[in-house]
Design a protein around this nucleic acid. Sequence first.
DNA 1: CGGGTCTTTGATTAGGTTCAATAAGAGTGG
DNA 2: CCACTCTTATTGAACCTAATCAAAGACCCG
Lengths: 307, 307
Amino acid sequence: MLTTQTPEIRPFKVTIPSSFYAEAAGSAPGATVWYPLEAGRQRQGRLWSNLKEVCDLLQISLAGPMAADELLFQHVRFKTGQRIHTIGQPFDTLYIVKSGFLKTILIDDFGGEQVLSFPMQGDLLGVDGIHTKHYSSEAVALSDCDLILLPFNKLTALGRVHPELDSLMYGVMSRELAREQAMIGMLGALSAEARVARFLLSLAERFAHMGYSSKLFNLRMTRHEIGSYLGLTLETVSRTLSAFNEIGLISVDQRTIGINDPAALKTLRRLPPSCSRAKQLAAAKLKAAREPAGGDLDSEIKLSVLI
Amino acid sequence: MLTTQTPEIRPFKVTIPSSFYAEAAGSAPGATVWYPLEAGRQRQGRLWSNLKEVCDLLQISLAGPMAADELLFQHVRFKTGQRIHTIGQPFDTLYIVKSGFLKTILIDDFGGEQVLSFPMQGDLLGVDGIHTKHYSSEAVALSDCDLILLPFNKLTALGRVHPELDSLMYGVMSRELAREQAMIGMLGALSAEARVARFLLSLAERFAHMGYSSKLFNLRMTRHEIGSYLGLTLETVSRTLSAFNEIGLISVDQRTIGINDPAALKTLRRLPPSCSRAKQLAAAKLKAAREPAGGDLDSEIKLSVLI
DNA sequence: CGGGTCTTTGATTAGGTTCAATAAGAGTGG
DNA sequence: CCACTCTTATTGAACCTAATCAAAGACCCG
């Protein structure tokens, strides 16, 4: 299962040749330059980050004095649709999202993809690969992305020189774990509406933290991907969004979402019947139509409903 | 939310006074004795484990030579029903399960508990507390338990002396993360029957790994707890178990489970209609009764439905 | 413009929850 | 030891949420 090399056909291929990673082994810990940059590749934007930038990005405060600019971490860019890593691929590096939006997925026993998370700025990718030395999930760019490389063997080697790195990693992994626990809690206990509401709120919070508006933003993912993430179908997601829109909690226009009533979204457990009233009425009509008790009115209704 | 000190009344109280943990801070890294054992407490059984035992328990192979018996880890025993840690409690130590069975839970926005996992031999507890310095979940003993203490500040301090410890921790945390991802995948995608089937199989595997029978074992948790864990109601769990029993996949007698057809359980997606036949027949009857094409029966039914 | 994907909305159905009643243990105290 | 209670488990019936099936509209991109 873990050895699958994902024979599926995908829209894009990873453009970084494996040789790009090949030189990771065998250089001294603490070296300031890790990988020769391939000639002419991805020169736009900042290509390196120091430890401070990495910590800021991860929102982790590093105890003790930092190793300043001694440690540099290389960036890589991915275009929309590209895979960062695939299931079963040998694990060697972690990634921190500097900018852009991604999804991580699991391929279930037959072919269907299950969305696990939507990483964005400050999130860490690839942690699931440490244990088995193979990635157990797949990461795909939903927009053009700028990722910071954290080659894992380098990281552990550096951990011996700069122990604060290990603390940093513990913190990040623990946060990830707690986040997944919250996700499990949500999937286990909440209704469809509550899931969608919380999803929107969590997006809003994350956008706010990145300096974007928490009141108005664009979804980078499809309804299908949202549904997969929330354990719902795309139709249910769409309907729920429409319902929220109708009662004014949010404003929906395709992938543009306006958050109008965050408080209501936060406390929402089930949708007040006022909005599903139409549905209920229709159901009542049908019911009434099925039990005619004799009468012309009844037949009329039956017609209007059935035609 | 995280600051909740769990005001709920619980059947048991933690018997270890907080002063037991108070001396964790401020001792030298690498010390072989960490905590004074309270006089007369829990002397039965082995009280200390060395690093090798810990690694064996965690099923993690430690690269490089081990620090032999220099590092000793203290055990603590908990009785059935006791809480190991609660939500919001300051984080200071990790626990490895040496023997016994537990559950970890989340308390959702109103009071209901959501089961996150059923830790047993070799599992690690408390990792979710590292990031915020407060446990974000609660662990409860489902049977008498023997846990190994891993005071976290000691662990990080020791990591500087014995870097293999950090690798060990990365591996364990990564495994935990991958496990939770699989859980999310399951909750998002599988039917009730498939969830129960997988749950039984995973229990069987874990029992087998501990040297117990994978064909016959006792559940340590209630139907309610299983349901919470799987995102189902206790009734659904009970019914599914009964259905599996009826078609011979398993044998159920209260909490004693016999696994008869592991292969079928593994590949099961939805239950073959043969077993829900009774349900279908009943439904068909009702349907037939509801559409009698005119007659006295109609009014009768209407009455019974509307009143 | 046309073909693709994505989204919305409707109608129907099925799987799972809820409510309810009963039964079986386990523990407690007389 | 038995009656009593409390928790846990089983089973039935009705209801309801969300999935499924289906069709049409919106958007994007070559």
